[in-house]
Design a protein around this nucleic acid. Structure first.
Length: 597
RNA sequence: GCCAGCGUAGCUCAGCCGGUCAGAGCAGCUGUUUUGUAAACAGCAGGUCGUCGGUUCGAAUCCGACCGCUGGCUCCA
């Protein structure tokens, strides 16, 4: 039988629950949906699940598959179900059923909704697998042996119904695919992703480092890493040129009053780094974002409608006191460098400004062969209290962004509840070379900060008007983008980005002078060059250059000194070629200019 | 912040049911070699076994706290 993979995965979750039920009769069950690549089930056995438990559960699952019970569907009223689960002591299920009964939904998160059909209020469906019965809307495979190939993967703590005030359950993750080959292929992909891990490559390629003395989540960039940072932000700056952006500069701390005015204080006080002064009683914070500062530059003098828009851009670092448990390599840090820009414009200029932003983003990601998808992030209609500003303002803003996406012909999905608290936004998701998607660039509309800071400009008729503010980031965060880029290229950066572009490898000591002279010449031509004058063999020098993923290698020995031609080796290729110096330089410069490999 | 796992030289790892347990390879340094396409040879040096405390006659090994890392959860302006 050819089941949809979700059906197999969800059935595998039940199968696992059935096994857990046998091994731990007291176990209480939460929810167990199918997810990307597999499934999980949240359980509570009164203690942590150990790796040994996982093995035992896996063994029991195999045993059940040999017994091959059918997945049997039944239906009963909510009250009957509550009675049944009360007898079974399944307190979590009872909570879900009570919610269903009183609120007509169990929905707290999208995942949980999978377990119960909110449309089918009044009665609920059950599935029985052998002696294990579970609340479930299905569908399921008919027999246990149809679940496919699984592998119990890992255990993690997970708050019941995703709320950190609720007790934590044990979430057991499993991979599940229809065939062995698919599972193997996925595991291979995981392995590949691990090899590309930017934390590993960052150390190996000497791009950035952490120190326990400096603190977690506070990366430091080495000379090679800074070359990458600089090239990336220069690229953005270059793309911004046609659109009239200007650079500004702001200090990295500000009085807390700034954020009390902006509204950030109320929302993020606990996530700010607080700075106190012994000289004054005033409280300061390390800036967690740049927009409030930028509003003060706008507000620093009277503005005329004639001069609008003002486009302030800055690559600058913000600081956020993230929960330590969620810091991760360059992906989640406490010092975040943003390629930030804020545009203050008239309402009639929003479209053009947002369009310009879109074009910059589009050009940037094309440069890395990362296809984009858009998401229009709007309010969560169920929680209007989470947002600043009036309903009409929001509706207009959401509409303006939707129109823009339609205009540029960008397909998009709508992300309800994904908006920032001050306005809707367009988030752009980039695909990397191994098929993952990342939310990176963003264009955000903001009708609220101008209001809070009482920003204004003088209109044609002499009246004071409120400008509209747009926030945008192209890379998102330089650190996070760099982490993604390292994994995208597996550390083998294209020539234009490589921190060291050319390695010159002298065959013997007597070729060193020639090598250094050549290096000087190539540097003057604009390349980043390194000479390996160690006393190692040529083979070893090549090996080292390959390990550092240097795009070009020039082996120089007697032949090159006498003949005048260069011997060129390209990263990852076994063959070499002979080329004149002029041709090598010309070709290299063209490749760099084209931002190609 | 919460749950779990982990922490031995710069890196990768061995040792870990308490008693020659401080080891290996790579990297580093010093010699020799002067090398022609992915690892020359030899020697030397390097760790208070994350930190602090506890149990014990004795702790890298057991326990606790803290720091850090990893995977999740929560959060994400």
């Amino acid at each position: 039988m050819n089941y949809p993979i979700e059906t197999r995965r969800h059935s595998a979750a039940h199968l696992m629950a059935a096994a857990v039920h046998r091994l731990f009769p007291e176990a209480k069950f939460g929810v167990g949906p199918a997810v990307e690549n597999g499934f999980y089930y949240d359980i509570d056995i009164g203690r942590a699940v150990t790796p040994d438990d996982l093995k035992a559960i896996d063994k029991e699952m195999k045993k059940i598959v040999r017994e091959n019970p059918a997945f049997v569907r039944g239906e009963l009223s909510i009250d009957e179900a509550i009675k049944l689960f009360t007898e079974l002591g399944q307190t979590y299920k009872i909570e879900l059923l009570n919610d269903l009964k009183t609120k007509g939904t169990t929905k707290v998160s999208a995942e949980e909704a999978q377990d119960i059909d909110p449309q089918n209020v009044g009665s609920v469906s059950m599935y029985r697998t052998g002696e294990f019965a579970d609340l479930c809307r299905g569908p399921h495979v008919t027999e246990a042996k149809d679940v496919g190939v699984w592998k119990l993967w890992k255990v993690a703590g997970a708050y019941w119904r995703g709320k950190d005030t609720n007790p934590q359950m044990q979430r057991i993750y499993g991979l599940c695919f229809a065939t062995k080959d698919e599972l193997a292929a996925y595991e291979k992909m995981l392995e590949e992703a691990e090899k590309r891990d930017h934390r590993k490559l960052g150390a190996e390629l000497d791009l950035f480092t952490f120190s326990p003395l400096v603190g977690s989540g506070l990366p430091m960039f080495t000379p090679r890493g800074v070359i990458l940072r600089q090239l990336l932000t220069d690229f953005v700056w270059e793309l911004m040129q046609p659109y009239g952006y200007e650079r500004v500069w702001i200090p990295h701390i500000a009085k807390s009053d700034l954020y009390k005015t902006s509204g950030h204080w109320d929302k993020f006080e606990d996530d700010l780094f607080h700075v106190s002064s012994k000289k004054t009683d005033e409280a300061f914070v390390l800036k967690p974002m740049n927009c409030p500062h930028h509003t003060q530059i706008f507000a620093s003098r009277p503005r005329s409608y004639r001069d609008m828009p003002f486009r302030f851009s800055e690559v600058t670092t913000v600081y956020r006191d993230e929960n330590t448990g969620q810091l991760q390599g360059l992906s989640r840090v406490r010092s975040i460098t943003q390629d930030d820009a804020h545009v203050f414009c008239r309402p009639d200029q929003v479209r053009d400004e947002a369009l310009a932003m879109y074009k910059i983003i589009d050009g940037f990601y094309k440069g890395f062969n990362m296809p984009l998808k858009a998401r229009l992030s709007v309010r969560d209609p169920d929680h209007p209290e989470k947002y600043l500003g009036g309903d009409e303002v929001w509706s207009n803003a959401e509409q303006a962004l939707a129109n823009l996406l339609k205009e540029v012909g960008m397909p998009y999905e709508v992300g309800e509840g994904e908006a920032a608290f001050y306005g809707p936004k367009i988030d752009l998701m980039a695909h990397d070379s191994i098929g993952r998607t990342w939310q990176l660039a963003t264009i955000q509309l903001d009708f609220n900060l101008p209001e809070r800071f009482e920003l204004e400009y003088t209109a044609e008729d002499g009246t004071k008007r409120r400008p509209v503010m747009l926030h945008r980031a192209i890379l998102g965060s330089v650190e996070r983008f760099l982490g993604i880029l390292i994994e995208h290229y597996a550390g083998a950066f294209p020539l234009w980005l490589a921190p060291v572009q050319i390695a010159i490898l002298p065959v013997a000591d007597r070729h060193n002078d020639f090598a250094f002279a050549l290096a000087k010449e190539l540097r003057e031509a604009g390349f980043r060059v390194e000479v390996d004058d160690s006393t190692e063999s040529v083979g070893k020098k090549i090996r080292n250059a390959e390990k550092m993923k240097l795009p070009r290698m020039l082996v120089v020995g007697d032949k090159e000194m006498e003949g005048g031609e260069l011997t060129v080796r390209v990263r990852g290729e076994a063959d070499q070629k002979t080329q004149s110096k002029e041709a090598f330089i010309k070709e290299g410069l063209e490749t760099v200019r084209a931002r190609a490999a």
